[in-house]
């Protein structure tokens, strides 16, 4: 079984307002096709860890390997390229570019990657929207759709470049239980059918229990 993501002794400090050792010797591993959830009480450092794993935060010590490549040595534009190509990120609150259409929001990362023609990207984006049940909103402005719909559109956007890993920071935190269930099913399907690797921070124990494995965190350390 191949490893898609691995960390070796990641440490992170905040210096403002006071020095604070927020992540302590984090070493975790995510296998290809695995659906893993991260749990832990509020403030223990889950989001902070996820920002590092997604390569957005580069202020840390230790090593991060994605798809066998050490991220610690790459510069910002190389990291942007990795995020674009290999990582799909689903935020809790930060959704979409409000002035663009739903469809355009989904297409943007693929247009940036430039691997396929615009027509193909558009077809793919409509496909993903269909899969997530929001195809009817494709040509509406992103600012005009509901919260649950936005979350599903942002999942579609995370999927558009067929990334190796999907990361989510409480992607169901803002959804009612029916929508949360729906999103879980979609993610599960991706893991099973497309052998995608998923790393999802969640507060929802029901959600976590249905994943392959739970990583439990407490105050900057991995408990299990």
């Amino acid at each position: 079984m191949s490893v898609i993501l691995e960390t070796k002794n990641i440490n992170k400090y905040f210096y403002e307002p006071v020095e604070f050792h927020v992540l302590k010797n984090i070493s975790i591993r995510l296998n290809t096709g695995e659906f893993v959830s991260i749990m832990g009480k509020s403030g223990c450092g889950k989001s902070t860890l996820l920002y590092i794993l997604s390569t957005m935060d580069t202020q840390y010590e230790g090593d991060l390997f994605i798809d066998g490549e050490n991220m610690s040595h790459l510069d910002n534009s190389e990291l942007a390229r990795i995020r674009n190509e290999k990582i799909g990120f689903v935020f809790q609150f930060h959704y979409l570019l409000p002035e663009f259409s739903v469809l355009k929001n989904v297409m943007l990362p693929a247009l940036k990657l430039g691997r396929e023609s615009e027509a193909i990207i558009k077809a793919k984006a409509l496909d993903k929207l269909e899969m997530l049940g929001v195809a009817s909103q494709a040509y509406n402005k992103a600012s005009s759709i509901s919260g649950g719909q936005k979350q599903r559109v942002s999942i579609a956007r995370a999927l558009i470049n067929d990334p190796k890993i999907i990361m989510g920071d409480e992607p169901t935190g803002n959804l009612d239980s029916k929508n949360a269930e729906n999103v879980f099913n979609i993610l599960k399907k991706l893991s099973v059918e497309q052998n995608m690797s998923l790393l999802i921070v969640t507060h929802d124990l029901d959600f976590a229990n249905k994943t392959d494995r739970i990583i439990e965190m407490g105050d900057g350390v991995i408990i299990k």
Binding site: A80, R81, R83, N84, F89, H94, Y95, L97, P109, K112
Partner: peptide, 14 residues
């Protein structure tokens, strides 16, 4: 918007 674009793979130069 800038944060989202950067998170989804647009570089600082973009």
């Amino acid at each position: 918007d800038i944060a989202i674009l950067k998170a989804t793979g647009f570089s600082g130069n973009d």
